[in-house]
Design a protein around this nucleic acid. Structure first.
Lengths: 347, 347
DNA sequence: CTGAAAGCGCTTACAG
DNA sequence: CTGAAAGCGCTTACAG
């Protein structure tokens, strides 16, 4: 490997001079140094630089599932800001596993100046250690049970789920099912609680068999939908707690030839790229995605630049009911109900 | 920051012993050392370790667009193998920019043991420098004009585009348009050449205004479709060269109320997650995705482990015509044509 | 098994 | 502006 010493020797200067030239400082023999660099095909060793200076100019973003379009958008937003500010972005995937997250974070600890994290579960302890090791952490989409000391960018999961519940109730549904995310994650728990709370306020009970525990993956949306359809008394409406499970549900309903919205109503949390092109276009709870990444990266960068930690900042974004055509009054005698405080919204 | 020295002092041993314990070697005071580590919340500094040992146990994967589901799947495949083999995966996004790719690769050079790369263009020079710096590089999905010295995992782009052309011709289309990718990328060029070659063999000419240069992004698929529709004599069929542009085309056709397949036939390269649920389900050229990532990572890992470079290995995977319902004979008098060698395939 | 010591490739006060 | 020198936090022959 060519090192700075090789360059220095060839250019007839000291390594310090090469270093300065590389860092953009004015140097007498700049030209000669540059020629030596080019000739030798020299690349500075970022690892050595980091060890000495402690700066990486790099930030990590650790998410549970890179193949989920929601996280992909979020990453896109984060990246645009990172790039603009001169940081390299390293993206890592935990595959919804706390163990994997722990290994990944330990690995990143001195290799990045800061981390944006969507923790696998609300009970994870590694983020605490990372912070303790002096690496700023900003939560996005998910937090910890006692995560108040961290900066965070979240959405109003409870509110969003309430909007979904309200929409279904307003159409007259009584037999409403939910396919939830893992209850040990912030959005899993929040959406579950919000949905239940809203139904309870309308005196609608959600029997155990209508409450299916999914895992935010497509397969669980598919599976649990099939189980719901197989029930002696199936629901007339389903709320799926994220985009991938909505896709799974759509496929299951399609496979079983259940017609939306005549035979079943479906509303999902998260918009779908192709939602408007589906037949029927599917009604969803929408929320900012790219913007969450942008805000999280801004928070992280300002945190990395300030000397003292300062008080943690929490951003909570609003969701929006996006009415399309996958929800209708339930089949049979039940009619439309008036629901207090319900406003329909649409694109 | 707690260092190995702090741990050593607390445990009453030398730093060397702590280091050995960390690396899993048997040590007399293992227990005491571990207690000191836990007590201090010590994390080994991966940067220092790398500088000394030269090993990172990390690989990078650099792709043009992480939000493209094709690359997301590819990453998923690569990751499963990396994890299985004890490597951490760092994912980077070039946003289809050679400049960004150059900066990213220079940044990764000593931080990873190897790189999987889908170069922004076939003319990129940085991959050569990376390899020269002693970092193994494997190309996936895309290569360089003179990329034969590198291991690679590609698909038969020409063959896939020919399948698409043949399908349209067999249905009787004569006025066929293509929205291509950038011609300075391997798949952009390959699909373009294959499509044209097949049409030429059937003595079908593709007039200039039927050949639209897209950029693999959704917006260009949308835009170019609108332009095609605005032509005095619009085509009766469109071939879109990747998934995102197919989505753009679908949205444009939907917005303009052009009915598929009665008024227009559409076939895309790359399958779409929701393709079967669309109305009509869209016909595509499908290809392995996760598998490409798996193969590329296997290639990279074996390359990183062998001492001598060895001869480069090239893997080329086959595409598959997946007939659904978005293509039909053109409207009007033209009838179905017999096409030599055409076989329909389906799911 | 253990410890003292050298060194990975840089950066950065320090003195000139 | 320049160079000599120390040191970032580890690992690893080497001698015991």
């Amino acid at each position: 490997m060519t090192t700075m010493y090789d360059v220095a020797r060839l250019a007839g200067v000291s390594p310090a001079t090469v270093s300065r030239h590389l860092r953009g400082q004015p140097v007498r023999d700049a030209e000669r140094v540059q020629r030596a660099i080019d000739e030798l095909g020299y690349f500075p060793n970022a690892v050595a630089r980091t060890l000495k200076s402690g700066v990486t100019q790099t930030v990590g973003i650790v998410v549970p599932d890179v193949t989920n379009p929601f996280f992909a958008s979020l990453v896109k937003g984060a990246e645009s800001i990172a790039r603009e500010q001169g940081y390299t972005l390293l993206l890592c995937n935990t595959d919804e596993s706390s163990e994997r997250e722990e290994a990944l974070l330990a690995d990143l600890i001195r290799r990045v100046d800061g981390v944006i994290l969507a923790p696998a579960t609300e009970q994870d302890e590694t983020p605490l250690h990372v912070r303790q090791a002096g690496v700023p952490v900003v939560f996005v989409d998910r937090s910890l049970v006692h995560g108040d000391q961290f900066d965070s960018v979240l959405v109003d999961n409870q509110g969003g789920a309430r909007q979904a519940a309200r929409h279904l109730v307003s159409l007259g549904h009584q037999r409403i099912a939910m396919i939830s995310g893992p209850l040990n994650t912030t959005p899993g728990r929040g959406r579950y609680e919000g949905f239940l709370a809203e139904l309870t306020e309308h005196s609608i009970e959600l029997p155990d068999e209508y409450l299916r525990a999914g895992d935010f993956r497509e397969s669980s949306g598919h599976q649990e939908t099939l189980r719901l359809l197989a029930l002696p008394e199936p629901p007339t409406a389903i709320f799926t707690a994220n985009n991938l499970m909505t896709i799974g549900a759509l496929k299951a309903l399609h496979d079983m030839r259940v017609r939306l919205p005549e035979q079943m109503s479906l509303i999902g949390f998260d918009d779908l790229e192709l939602a408007p092109l589906l037949s029927p276009p599917v009604t969803v709870i929408d929320r900012p995605t790219v913007e969450q990444g942008v805000l999280a990266m801004r928070l992280l960068i300002s945190k990395m630049r300030e000397d003292s930690p300062g008080t943690p900042r929490h951003i909570e974004l609003e969701t929006r009911l996006c009415v399309r055509e996958s929800c209708a009054p339930p089949p049979g005698p039940t009619g439309r109900r008036e629901v207090k405080g319900h406003r329909g919204a649409s694109r």
